[in-house]
């Protein structure tokens, strides 16, 4: 490589680096400006949405790196009808070494946080205040409030700020118990009791938020799309009154 080539090469790297920097800043601003998440109403939703946002931050420079380096070279290095060959660069220890170290470090980092840390947060606070048995069958949901023995169908009533344990079962095929506003989902498997926990932190109901619903998220046959019921979160006192009226 001649002196001129080397200067040229350094100049290219500098230009690409600058564009990458600018693109990354713009991407991070865009990521922050976009509303990614729908209505959120639980402690779990915060953990999940935070994990998603953190991953967006990690992803932004990777995404822009490939686009900027690729885009730059696609524009600059197109053959202008010369029919010539490109520079026979088969390897570059510095570039490869840096790439391997950074991608490995980033992968490990992502595993630790938000991966393991998010999971640990979700699993913290394992003591329930309220246990609800969820029974899925084609194609509706039934809820039994374990302590009082009250069984309901239709809208799922929950008190705010209480740790709720759902014990989920199915009588026929696999269903999945999903409440989009809570960011919780667990399959209902015949012959097995699965569990998931949630703390609702916002009052609301399906009437004003589409995400406040129990939706079946595992294909279960012809009624699958319509297998959902509303979720209503109320104050404890109102919940107690409702439960008493319902027969508890």
């Amino acid at each position: 490589m001649g002196e001129e080539d080397r200067n040229n090469s350094s100049k290219r790297l500098l230009v690409v680096g600058l564009i990458w920097l600018v693109a990354t800043v713009l991407a991070v601003i865009a990521v922050a400006a976009i509303q990614w998440h729908p209505f959120a109403a639980s402690r779990e939703a915060e953990i999940t949405d935070d994990a998603f946002d953190l991953l967006l931050l990690f992803a932004a420079p990777v995404f822009t790196f490939v686009l900027v380096v690729g885009g730059y070279t696609l524009v600059r290095d197109r053959d202008r009808g010369t029919g010539a060959d490109g520079a026979p660069i088969r390897t570059n220890r510095l570039f490869i070494g840096t790439w391997v170290v950074i991608t490995t470090a980033l992968s490990v980092l992502i595993v630790i946080t938000p991966g393991f840390t998010g999971l640990d947060e979700l699993r913290a606070e394992p003591e329930p205040d309220l246990i609800i048995d969820v029974r899925a069958e084609r194609w509706n949901w039934a809820y039994t409030y374990a302590e009082s023995g009250v069984e309901t169908q239709g809208t799922l009533m929950l008190p705010i700020d209480r740790r709720i344990l759902f014990r989920i079962s199915s009588t026929d095929v696999i269903h999945s118990f999903w409440i989009p506003a809570f960011r919780i989902k667990k399959d209902a498997v015949p012959g097995q009791i699965t569990t998931t926990m949630v703390t609702a932190e916002v009052l609301g109901s399906f009437d004003n938020q589409d995400e406040m619903r129990v939706q079946c998220a595992e294909l279960c046959g012809v009624g699958h799309a319509r297998m959902f019921t509303g979720v209503t979160v109320v104050e404890q006192a109102e919940f107690d009154a409702w439960l008493a009226a319902a027969g508890g």
């Binding site: 953990i47 992803a59 991966g115 998010g118 999903w178 989009p180 989902k185």
Partner: peptide, 13 residues
């Protein structure tokens, strides 16, 4: 994103 369990719980299916 999908390999991250907390995110996947919401986005799965």
């Amino acid at each position: 994103f999908l390999a991250d369990v907390p995110v996947d719980i919401q986005l799965q299916d």
